[in-house]
């Protein structure tokens, strides 16, 4: 689907800081996996490669979810002052 140009994927430059705007744009594109998809579709992805990639992504997602849960468990707190001695 085409998006309205200069509305979608547009970042304004502030204080003449072009580099920061570029970085922000690239970060958004990277996070939305637009650049990944662009790189992936330069060459044909054979079915075995597709399967392997999907399986790898599944495993990674499961691992990340579990790891997030573990980190949350370690970081859990129930104190009046959540970070004693840090104020």
């Amino acid at each position: 689907m085409r998006h309205a140009s200069f509305i979608a994927r547009t970042v304004f430059v502030q204080n003449n800081d072009v580099e920061a705007a570029c970085r922000l744009l690239n970060r958004i594109l990277g996070r939305e996996e637009i650049l990944d998809q662009f790189r992936r579709t330069r060459f044909f992805e054979k079915p075995f490669q597709f399967r392997r990639r999907i399986n790898f992504e599944k495993c990674k997602a499961i691992y990340n979810e579990d790891m997030d849960r573990k980190i949350q468990f370690v970081l859990r707190k129930n104190r009046l002052d959540p970070f004693p001695g840090c104020s």
């Binding site: 547009t10 970042v11 430059v13 003449n16 744009l25 637009i34 579709t41 330069r42 060459f43």
Partner: peptide, 28 residues
């Protein structure tokens, strides 16, 4: 562009990306 003295207002990305593209060329 900026170094030459232009005042850049905004930066837009218009990279053509499709999620159901025609079959691309074979891999290198």
């Amino acid at each position: 562009l900026q170094m030459a003295g232009l005042n850049i207002v905004s930066i837009t990305d218009s990279t053509r990306v499709s999620w159901n593209p025609p079959r691309p060329r074979k891999q290198r």
